[in-house]
Design a protein around this nucleic acid. Structure first.
Length: 297
DNA sequence: CGGGACTCCTGCCAGC
DNA sequence: TGCTGGCAGGAGTCCC
């Protein structure tokens, strides 16, 4: 599910609930998500305060009192819902505890529940269990297996046409695959890559390396960088994209899906002014790509 | 080494 | 109506 804008939305939703608050209890209903949860996960969190929340790529990092870092990835279907004290409808679907106290162990796929000082509950739900959580000393974050080698933040200052030029130089992989590679740009996923390539009028099939070098038009990478930034910022403002069931931490859906120009729009007429093309779906490295074969070159 | 296929898991939906 | 196959926002691992 969640790409950078959705993870950012979730992180921002959790901030006021978690920052500065103590974790009073952790209910862990499974030994593992995608990977085993760390040893003594609950015990190492209980009684500690959350000092701060941040996002890196598609990861949420929580700084825990005492020096640990809680690392979270939502995978495809991971979701956090905040339940207010005493229950009530704060989420969607199975989190409907109208008028009754939140019971301890209900909804299918509610794998981890954090009970927070003040009575709120932060519920992690993940049907497919492609998400993960890890807990390790904050000092080890730089060398953490999952964090090392991650590329530049596309909304940060270091992201530029020259960053992309360096990464793309000599690359034979299709542009689509290169943009999905988290070692190059951190946080892009299938939706926003398709949308950004459309705005930049770049073909997903073009070899990434053809955008660099003497014969390449440098404006094309400038455009791509600008469109990636724009689309991510617009999506964050819209609270992300909701396809089937993504929700913000208060249960409300994102709205950016209303502005998709290519994603999941196979057969639709291209929205570029004057273009007579229609959106096509192809499969690249096992994943759907949506694009206009007429105006994306 | 780079690039692509396969894999994990559940739910949903189109098509028969 | 009910089953089946395909597909889904990710990414680590394996193989060529």
């Amino acid at each position: 599910m969640p790409e950078l804008p959705e993870v950012e939305t979730v992180m921002r939703g959790l901030k006021p609930v978690l920052e500065g608050r103590r974790i009073e209890g952790v209910l862990q209903r499974r030994k593992d998500l995608r990977f085993p949860l760390p040893e003594n996960f609950s015990a190492r969190l209980e009684g500690r305060r959350v000092l701060g929340l941040a996002r890196r790529a598609k990861y949420i990092l929580a700084s825990i009192e005492g020096g640990d870092c809680l690392l979270i990835h939502l995978g495809m279907t991971g979701r956090f819902t905040v339940l207010e004290q005493g229950g009530g409808k704060r989420g969607i679907g199975e989190f409907y505890y109208e008028g009754e106290p939140v019971p301890d162990g209900e909804g299918p796929h509610d794998h981890v529940v954090f009970a927070i000082e003040g009575g709120q509950r932060v519920v992690y739900n993940d049907p497919r269990r492609f998400g993960m959580m890890d807990l390790f000393p904050e000092a080890d974050a730089i060398s953490h297996k999952l964090l090392q080698g991650i590329g530049v933040e596309p909304l940060g200052n270091e992201f530029s046409a020259s960053t992309l030029a360096n990464a793309f130089h000599g690359k034979k992989a299709p542009l689509k695959a290169a943009l999905l590679d988290q070692r190059i740009v951190a946080g892009l996923g299938n939706i926003y890559v398709c949308e950004a390539m459309f705005r930049a009028r770049l073909s997903p099939r073009r070899k990434a390396g053809t955008l660099t070098g003497r014969r390449a038009d440098p404006r094309r990478l400038d455009d791509l960088v600008r469109h990636i930034r724009d689309i991510l910022n617009e999506a964050i403002t819209a609270g992300g994209s909701t396809l089937q069931d993504f929700a913000q931490t208060d249960g409300s859906p994102g709205t950016f899906q209303q502005r998709f120009q290519v994603y999941d729009r196979e057969g639709a007429p291209c929205s570029t002014a004057g273009c007579t093309g229609h959106i096509r779906r192809i499969v690249q490295s096992g994943r759907s790509t949506f694009f206009c074969p007429v105006c994306q070159k």
